[in-house]
Each structure stands twice: as C-alpha cells, then as structure tokens.
Design a protein around this nucleic acid. Structure first.
Length: 221
DNA sequence: TCTAGGTTTAATTTACATCA
DNA sequence: CTGATGTAAATTAAACCTAG
C-alpha cells in the first residue's frame, strides 16, 4: 500500500475533521509558528502578464469538476492530469480546485453537524422541562395524599378512643391480660412515607437513605 | 449609474508527513 | 539525510454581488 493509498483510505475511514486531527496529533508536536509570508511578486516578472490574472472557471468546467468530486474527494495524479487535459486547465489548477472544494465540503459538514447537535440539545432541554413539570405535579399529588393519610389516621384514632377506654378499664380487673392492640403496619406508599420513623421523612426506594421533605423536594428542583 | 462593503473562490504560503 | 510530492489550514486577492 503506497502513501497515496493510505491517505485515500484514511479519508474514507474518517470524516475530514477527524482525519486532520489524526495527522496533526501524530508525534504530538506543537505546530511551529508560521513563517512570515514572503511578499508576492507584485511588480515582479510575471505580474504584468494577464495570464497570471485569476480566471473564473466556466460553468461546464465546474460541473465536470463537481461530478468528479462527487465520485471521489481526492485525485490520483493520473486522473488529475487526465481531467486537466479534458478541461483545458493546468493540473495544478485542478489540484487547487479539489483542495478548495475539500475545504468547503468540510466547512459545510461542520455546519451541518453543528445544527444537528443544536437541534438535539434543544429537544433535550424541552424534554427536561416536561419531566420537571411532571415531577412537580407528582410531588404535589404525593403531598396531598400524605395529608389525606394523616387525616384518616386521626379519624381512626378518634374512633378507637371509646373502645380503648372500655378495654383499659376491664384490664384493670385482670392484671395478666394486656390490651391486645391491633397495630396497623406502617403505611409505606410509593414514596415510603413512614410516620413511625420521623415526622417528615421520605425513603427513596432505590436509595439507602432517608430524606426529609425539603431535602427530597430539593433533589428535584 | 456608481460605489463601498460583503461574499465567493482561485491561488498562494506554510508546516508537516511520507517515501524513494 | 534530502528532495519530491502530497495534504490541511490559513490567508490573499480578484471577481462578483448588492444595498443604498
């Protein structure tokens, strides 16, 4: 595999940006500072020559170059010469055109990638907002249910009181018998509200610790 | 119609890699 | 090591476009 083949393979395996990164990372060398640009030959031997002036390529030339670029982003030397002959251009011009075209292609790709990532980012933010809203709703629902539970427990206690008075007076006649109080198991709902543990404590099913109410809320704010 | 300022693009420069 | 050749990146400058 010669150098050109290797380059070709690299460019196929990696998008232009990664490909150039790989090249520049080889050897981990810092890029040397660019040398001062030498003055162009303004007024030099060829500057007066109109042939040196920049000529825009014709539509047909550009079409054929684009067609070739569509097939392959890099040119082998032979193909470059053939194409140059076909278009009536200097092989150097064809090489330069491909070089510039690759640079434009890379810029376009980067731009596309930027907008695609931006889109993903925006939709993720939106999803996060929706999930946060949902969580707040669920939390206020949990608080409401907890309030209801507390009320229900108070009501149970209130209804029990007459019965407990009777059993405690009758137990005084028999010291052996204790009040057989049916103790309800602590209610541990979805959020593990356990009044037997602490007044305002939540147990997270997937975690091994307890949070008080404000801490629990702040986890989701 | 003219023109200043912006955009596009052909060409150049530079640094670096690879190979014979 | 050296020179030839290739590339990417940065830059320049000619040609072109457009608002005012």
């Amino acid at each position: 595999m010669n150098h050109q083949d290797q380059m070709m393979l690299m460019s196929q395996l990696f998008p232009a940006c990664e490909y150039t990164q790989i090249i520049s990372q080889q050897g981990e060398k810092k890029p040397k500072p660019r040398r001062k640009r030498s003055k162009k030959n303004k007024g030099g031997e060829n500057s007066a020559n109109d042939m040196n002036k920049k000529r825009k390529l014709s539509d047909e030339q550009v079409n054929i170059l684009e067609e070739n670029f569509g097939n392959e982003h890099k040119l082998e030397s032979e193909k470059k010469d053939r194409l140059a002959m076909e278009l009536g251009l200097d092989p150097r011009q064809v090489a330069v055109w491909f070089q510039n075209r690759r640079a434009r292609w890379k810029n376009k790709k980067l731009e596309e990638e930027y907008f695609s990532l931006k889109k993903i980012h925006e939709s993720t933010i939106l999803e996060k907002c929706l999930l946060e809203t949902k969580l707040r709703e669920q939390h206020s629902e949990a608080l409401k249910l907890r309030e209801q539970l507390s009320e229900a427990e108070k009501e149970i206690q209130r209804l029990r009181e007459p019965f407990e008075r009777v059993t405690s007076s009758s137990s005084s006649t028999s010291s052996m018998s204790q009040s057989v109080e049916v103790v309800d198991p602590p209610f541990l709902g979805e959020f593990g509200v356990d009044n037997g543990y602490d007044d305002d404590v939540f147990f997270m099913p997937n975690e091994t610790c307890y949070y008080n109410g404000m801490e629990w809320i702040s986890l989701y704010m």
